[in-house]
Simulated assay, not measured.
Amino acid sequence: MKRALIVRHVPREGAAGYLKPIEAAGYHIDRIDVASRDFAAVDLCEPDLLIMMGGPMGVYEHDRHPWIPLQIEKLAARLDNDRPTLGVCLGSQMIAAALGARVYPGGHMELGFAPIRVNEAGAESPLRHVDGVPLLHWHSDTFDLPDGVELLASTDRYAHQAFRRGRNLLALQFHAEMGEDPRFEDWLTHFWADLDVAGQCGVALRRDHDDHGPGAVAAGRAMIGEWLAGLGKA
């Protein structure tokens, strides 16, 4: 059986709604937390599929999180070999950094459910499934677009919402995996300061989660399912 490895930067940010299409594509799923003492020995080139999820840290915060340079080094080796890789939020920023692009504070918080704008390339990619669908955004960092990749989607606040390189690399700044996972309450509890920065109300955000979450997850699953089906194809 094919093996997928999920790298979690904090336990409350897992693959959530993406688990179903990953399992349906025939992958056995393993997980590792970057806080684990085993992480330093993990070969990120080995899994058939690598999924790197989100987290509240910045890619540039090497002093606070000394595992970040190691992860970027390991990830760069995987990308050099064009191994199937998916990055979500912080994971997408890690991919950008591993490809040599700058990752930096964007100057404002993008938080809440809102649609992305898929461009012409995105409309011909698995991103077509999430075009116009209200999706969860929760970040304030962004990145320069790496060389050799194709931009797929933007929002008014952040131009770089998704990119790909060929069929085996997909980076997503937004959270189309979230909308039905009970860990959303943990996000509200642990990242409550972000709500103040973004001028968001927790009650309204819970309501939007209930209203938009199922549709976001359904669209996200369709996107990831199509992407997985195309891995390795010319």
Score class of each variant (00 low, 15 high):
residue 112 G to R: 01
residue 14 G to F: 03
residue 187 W to F: 14
residue 189 T to E: 15
residue 130 V to M: 02
residue 93 Q to D: 09
residue 202 G to V: 09
residue 170 L to E: 00
residue 169 L to M: 01
residue 99 L to G: 03
residue 105 P to D: 01
residue 86 L to I: 12
residue 204 A to C: 03
residue 214 P to S: 08
residue 223 M to C: 15
residue 123 A to C: 12
residue 75 L to A: 06
residue 85 T to G: 03
residue 44 L to V: 13
residue 62 H to R: 10
residue 146 P to Q: 05
residue 159 A to N: 13
residue 67 W to P: 09
residue 136 L to D: 02
residue 229 A to E: 11
residue 34 V to Y: 00
residue 95 I to D: 00
residue 60 Y to I: 00
residue 116 I to T: 15
residue 130 V to S: 01
residue 62 H to E: 13
residue 205 L to H: 00
residue 215 G to S: 14
residue 224 I to M: 05
residue 90 L to V: 09
residue 201 C to W: 02
residue 63 D to Q: 14
residue 77 A to S: 14
residue 67 W to E: 10
residue 207 R to M: 09
residue 183 R to E: 11
residue 224 I to R: 00
residue 72 I to Q: 04
residue 34 V to G: 01
residue 34 V to M: 02
residue 111 L to R: 06
residue 118 V to R: 06
residue 180 E to A: 10
residue 210 D to G: 12
residue 113 F to A: 01
residue 69 P to Y: 01
residue 210 D to W: 13
residue 58 G to L: 05
residue 211 D to P: 03
residue 189 T to Q: 15
residue 195 L to D: 09
residue 230 G to K: 06
residue 178 M to W: 08
residue 49 L to K: 14
residue 227 W to V: 07
residue 220 G to D: 01
residue 87 G to M: 02
residue 9 H to C: 06
residue 60 Y to D: 00
residue 58 G to E: 01
residue 165 R to V: 08
residue 171 A to Y: 03
residue 25 A to W: 09
residue 40 A to H: 07
residue 28 H to W: 10
residue 26 G to Y: 10
residue 126 P to E: 03
residue 190 H to Q: 12
residue 157 R to Y: 05
residue 99 L to A: 03
residue 129 H to G: 12
residue 164 R to G: 13
residue 51 I to N: 06
residue 130 V to A: 08
residue 5 L to D: 06
residue 174 F to T: 11
residue 46 E to D: 15
residue 113 F to W: 12
residue 91 G to D: 02
residue 212 H to G: 08
residue 226 E to F: 00
residue 175 H to Q: 05
residue 38 D to M: 13
residue 2 K to N: 13
residue 218 A to M: 10
residue 113 F to D: 00
residue 72 I to R: 01
residue 111 L to M: 07
residue 38 D to T: 11
residue 80 D to G: 11
residue 62 H to P: 03
residue 9 H to V: 07
residue 192 W to T: 15
residue 40 A to Y: 06
residue 25 A to Y: 07
residue 206 R to V: 10
residue 203 V to T: 14
residue 164 R to T: 15
residue 210 D to H: 14
residue 36 S to L: 03
residue 190 H to M: 11
residue 189 T to Y: 12
residue 59 V to I: 10
residue 215 G to R: 13
residue 29 I to R: 11
residue 73 E to H: 10
residue 15 A to T: 14
residue 1 M to I: 15
residue 174 F to C: 15
residue 186 D to M: 14
residue 137 H to A: 08
residue 71 Q to M: 14
residue 96 A to G: 06
residue 142 T to H: 04
residue 82 D to I: 02
residue 187 W to I: 10
residue 101 A to P: 02
residue 122 G to W: 13
residue 212 H to A: 13
residue 55 G to A: 09
residue 91 G to K: 00
residue 152 L to H: 04
